[in-house]
């Protein structure tokens, strides 16, 4: 081989990427671990020449933080709710897309749009859709001037307008909005992957199933899903990883306070917690980041283990 004769050349060509990775990925990871184990680490104090003890105080601090449970609960809840829903929907949509010929390209583009649009911007659009405009909303002398388009639709069908995200809204309503938004936002990538998988499935399997008189449902569950299982595993794992890092979508809808004005930080997540701590409690933020890493790691391993048991080829 040519490469083995002059290995330095390969290193030379790789060096720009390696240098960037070292500076912006590897070093921050090492540094995060270091900061997490330095008790009460604080960048300002470092500048002042303070030395920190090695220990687990940061981790204890994270767990003892009063909002930690809320953050963890919201993060896990959003993951557990959105990943299965979006995966199932993406599966159904991609199977349908694969089955039709006219408009397929157009629909593919439409379904892919959220992927290339800024999530904060989409969040603001969603906020407007679920919004209510009026006086004292959620208060005593409530006066709704206009409700958002979603409430308009509900009212059109004779329902009661729901306070989705404004002051005084319920946690269930808030969560519903978040789930809808995150699912919708997660669909394009999943559809893309699954549709690609579907298009590489040999059509003869379906012909064979047809000749054998297989019903559509059975074809889907016994042939399509198993044949797609590697792709499904992939989108579920990436879905969980993305779900555990949920942050900007919530900011997009509820703003920096991550909750309706009456209940700030109600929808706080792990990443939200980490970001806020970055300002002056870098030690605790690092510890929280490591905890999050641990959770994602365990969940991913679990996913891989389960999917290995169910993927057979």
């Amino acid at each position: 081989m040519v490469g083995s004769k002059k290995p330095w050349k390969a290193w030379l060509y790789l060096s720009p990427a390696i240098v960037l990775l070292l500076i912006f990925t590897v070093w921050p990871i090492i540094n995060t671990v270091r900061m997490a184990f330095l008790e009460g680490y604080n960048a300002l104090a470092v500048a002042g020449g303070k030395k920190f003890e090695f220990g687990f105080a940061n981790f204890v601090n994270v767990i003892e933080y009063r909002d930690f449970v809320t953050c963890l609960k919201n993060t896990v809840l959003l993951c557990v709710l959105t990943v299965p829903i979006s995966t199932f929907l993406a599966l159904v949509i991609s199977v349908c897309l694969n089955a039709i010929k006219p408009f397929r390209r157009m629909l593919q583009t439409i379904f892919f749009l959220p992927y290339v649009t800024n999530s904060i911007a989409i969040g603001m659009v969603f906020a407007a859709m679920f919004n209510m405009v009026g006086r004292n909303i959620g208060g005593k002398n409530e006066l709704i001037l206009t409700a958002g388009i979603i409430n308009n639709v509900i009212e059109f069908f004779g329902g009661q307008a729901i306070n989705w995200i404004n002051k005084g809204s319920s946690e269930v309503a808030n969560m519903t909005v978040m789930v809808i938004y995150i699912v919708w936002n997660a669909l394009p990538f999943k559809i893309l992957v699954l549709l690609g998988g579907l298009q590489s499935v040999n059509k003869q399997y379906y012909d064979a199933a047809k000749v054998d008189g297989t019903s559509r449902l059975r074809t889907f569950t016994r042939i399509t899903v198993p044949l797609l299982s590697p792709m499904i595993t992939y989108v579920v794992i990436t879905g969980f990883i993305g779900g555990f890092k949920e942050y900007s979508s919530i900011v997009g809808i509820f703003g920096e306070k991550m909750g309706p004005t009456s209940n700030p930080y109600r929808l706080d997540t792990m990443v939200g917690f980490i970001y806020r701590d970055l300002a002056n409690q870098q030690g605790r933020a690092s510890a929280a980041a490591l905890i999050l890493f641990g959770i994602i790691f365990v969940v991913t391993m679990l996913n891989l283990y389960i999917s290995k048991k169910n993927t057979h080829y």
Binding site: Q204, D207, A208, V211, G213, P226, H312
Partner: peptide
């Protein structure tokens, strides 16, 4: 009659065996 209802046995050129079964 659609293929499902004809009840023929068909062997494909590359067999089309379900790989996961």
């Amino acid at each position: 009659l659609p293929a499902e209802s004809r009840g023929v046995g068909l062997v494909f050129q590359n067999y089309a065996l379900y790989p996961h079964l």
